[in-house]
């Protein structure tokens, strides 16, 4: 069986050293470190107070008010990077067959900040106060799912959850989908937003 050649036609990124590919690349070649003192929450009292956060991030610059409330940060990051990649690739409506275009996204955890917030609500205000968006906001495949909804892809859509290897597994899965001729285009990569009050101390030995 002939295997198709696979090429990358567009890339996107939002990282600790840049809010897009150009900024990220400039930082990398200039040796800029993304590590700094944690700003997302109060770290006083923690033995480790540094992390590679995405800095100066303002969701309102990227999403409307309703989206900001409905999208966990990990999903926001995925959508920002994907938007840049889709644009870079010139993947516009009419240029692809929706049935043969899909998304394989990677994430190690998912919306852990949402999980934390809603769990606190459950235990302080009671189960009736849990948001109906709790599960659709935090599950690990919502970022990839929303990308297909947004761009109208109807091909394969699933998420790899394999800790730090999640995005790599997503990319190889997407690569194989194209190589084996099952699809024409795939959006793939990974995102995570785990530097928060409950998750961070758990990562420190």
């Amino acid at each position: 069986m002939t295997k198709r050649r696979v090429v990358i036609t567009g890339i996107g990124a939002i990282t600790p050293v840049g809010h897009n590919v150009a900024q990220t690349w400039q930082s990398l070649i200039n040796g800029v470190s993304g590590v700094g003192r944690i700003t997302h929450f109060d770290v006083s009292g923690l033995p480790v107070q540094i992390a590679a956060e995405i800095k100066n991030y303002n969701p309102e610059e990227h999403f409307d008010h309703k989206e900001v409330k409905k999208l966990d940060i990990y999903t926001q990051y995925a959508m920002i990077a994907a938007r840049e990649a889709v644009k870079d690739a010139g993947l516009e409506a009419g240029t692809f067959n929706p049935e043969r275009t899909g998304v394989i996204s990677g994430v190690g955890i998912g919306g852990i900040l949402t999980f934390e917030e809603e769990t606190i609500k459950c235990h302080t205000a009671g189960p009736r106060r849990i948001s109906p968006f709790f599960i659709p906001k935090m599950i690990a495949n919502i970022a990839g799912g929303l990308l297909s909804i947004r761009y109208g892809f109807r091909g394969p859509n699933y998420t790899t959850v394999t800790a730090c290897a999640s995005a790599s597994h997503a990319i190889i899965e997407a690569f194989n989908k194209i190589r084996l001729g099952k699809v024409d285009f795939m959006i793939t990569g990974g995102s995570e937003a785990g530097v928060n009050e409950a998750a961070w101390p758990a990562l420190i030995p």
Partner: peptide, 13 residues
């Protein structure tokens, strides 16, 4: 439909 549930919850709060 989920928005409407959240709206009602906000009214309750």
């Amino acid at each position: 439909s989920l928005d409407t549930v959240e709206l009602v919850m906000a009214f309750e709060d």
